[in-house]
Design a protein around this nucleic acid. Structure first.
Lengths: 194, 194, 194, 194
DNA sequence: CATGAATGAGTTTTCATTCAT
DNA sequence: TATGAATGAAAACTCATTCAT
């Protein structure tokens, strides 16, 4: 195929990103050296720079990739016109699925504080999904299904509850089973329902 | 008096810790250099090492100091035998007061990910308060006031909701007023109530 | 014909050398990367190594090529048996023509300091022309036309004056016109004439 | 003394600058690593950065120091109102003295091409002395002592002749004695005299 | 007790050169 | 021939920590 090169190139990129997320999830951005990533990927340090301008560009590409994937996963056929309870259910289970299947990606996205190195584009990815969530919540408020509080507050509570659950699970303090996830979901729903 | 030395010593320690929290809250652990802290404190770098073994010991001392202070503040005359709703109210308002009055301490404690450098003792401080909270919740569960879910899950949701609220406020996406705080508290309560 | 290969080969060499001189004249040896040269030539990096052992061999080939070309140009039908004034005139105008027509080659040859990387052969090229000039000057001295100083000194003054003029022109401090060049030539002549 | 610290600091700076000029004169800017300089100075690499922001700041400080010293040396009690021949004599002998006594400084200043890294201030140092020389020459032209050519051209020829002489001496092609220097001076004078 | 100069290991980044395709 | 991905050594620069004063 004529696009073998392109494919190889994409493979390398993906390989580096995969290595990076292992390191970043485990140690965070600042404790991860470019050498760590190259070693994890089984390649030389210099090669990373053929694919990413620098460490910051790499972490931003990584953020955008996974935040984008998570967003897409959550929003795919999202039950926009269904009752809020069902939206919360879909949201929660999809987040939980993602956290279970891609624990490192989720850890990277939610466990660490990114403010240091995220660029405007990465921040925009986050902003976009928050805006979307706001609109859903406002619609639900209009239908009287959820509390008439600032939508951003409800998002904060929902998101915070989810992340709180995950953190305790990561710390080994909470066993994360379908049952506990469902219980947490119920909590989250009751937190915001009218 | 021999006490003068001790006092001066304590003053110095406090002075360094105060400088450190300014830096850590603003830039995080890894982006803060010992020189940053010494400059903020108006002393020399070397002097910090008379009071703290190394950077890690300093950050642990800082963590324990503020986590301890927060714990003490929250638990002071805590309405142990009152209804859960009231306990949540006291908890929430005390946390909110602390976050408002000691924004840097709260940012340091909750904004950053500490797993890298916290030692066993620091983790124990956290463990202690979580255990306490568990007991309160179990009592409330026994009284049928809160959901019969794993107490750790309820704690995760409560804590997560509070931190979520604060994060959005820090990001400038949410105005944190007594009213919004009260609304969030109501959410949190309904999240866990039976 | 087997010549086609040879010719292509020579073309490639020339193509690379042409690209190299653009880069070296602009940025100097150390700031020019092999990738810069390959990009300028529109070929791949690896290909350069089919024609030149390494970067140093390339710069030496380049030096010898242009120093040789300049030498040939200056010496072509040089008025060996004419009065020194006329020799200086021919020398000066040919140097000036070359500097005008091949500004990059001249910049490369005279603007930068080559001592770092020039090999024996490159230095020999320079030596050869200097020796030649010495002989001309000694003949002129024998005729009493130029000062009876060490010929090398007179060469140094002549060459230095020319390069000095060019440098100021490169720096934009001096407009280089036929008139100013002629004036400088007159200076140079009077510098060495008996 | 209360300024022991200041003095030590100045000593260190001077020590680093001294080491730097040895390296830069020998190898040029790009071939000299910060480690080379630290080794030459007998100190650690990191220490250089306490005294100079970075390599570029170091080379600029060095340039300004020596260009400034040379300028001061040349201009000290310069025979401004004396005949041009005498001015050329003073100029030439002082340059020659400096080149003999501070060969490395002179090599650094004149042998290498600085355009890459010199900052505005360093360039201003050079500009200032050239402007001054222009004024002297214009005055001499007004008195009919030197050729009525663009002053910058005369400067180029004078300066070029001197540097040309020095280069040949560095290359070992010319023995630089008081006599040859005087001869070159005579050449230089006749180059520009009316 | 207090300073801050000094160290050197560690980090990011570049680039000449090689080699499988 | 020709490519350009891959390597790894070396460079600039940082910073926690030490120690002479």
């Amino acid at each position: 195929m004529s696009n073998t090169l392109k494919d190889n190139s994409q493979d390398r990129r993906a390989q580096i990103l995969d290595a990076a997320i292992v390191c970043f999830a485990k140690q965070g951005f600042h404790l991860t050296s470019m050498h760590d990533i190259s070693a994890q990927a089984g390649i030389s340090v210099g090669l990373i720079y053929r694919y990413f301008e620098n460490k910051e560009a790499l972490v931003n590409a990584l953020y955008q990739k996974h935040k984008g994937a998570l967003t897409a996963l959550v929003l795919k056929d999202f039950p926009v016109d269904k009752p809020a309870r069902q939206m919360v259910h879909v949201l929660w289970t999809r987040l939980a699925d993602y956290a279970r299947e891609q624990p490192r990606a989720f850890a990277f996205l939610e466990l660490h504080h990114h403010a240091d190195y995220l660029d405007a584009q990465s921040q925009a990815v986050e902003t976009r999904i928050v805006d979307l969530a706001c609109r859903f919540l406002q619609a639900a408020q209009a239908r009287g299904e959820v509390k008439p509080y600032p939508p951003m507050l409800l998002i904060a509570v929902l998101h915070g509850a989810f992340v709180g659950m995950l953190r305790k699970a990561w710390e080994g303090l909470l066993e994360l089973t379908p049952e506990t996830s469902a219980q947490a979901e119920q909590c989250a729903w009751e937190a915001i329902r009218a």
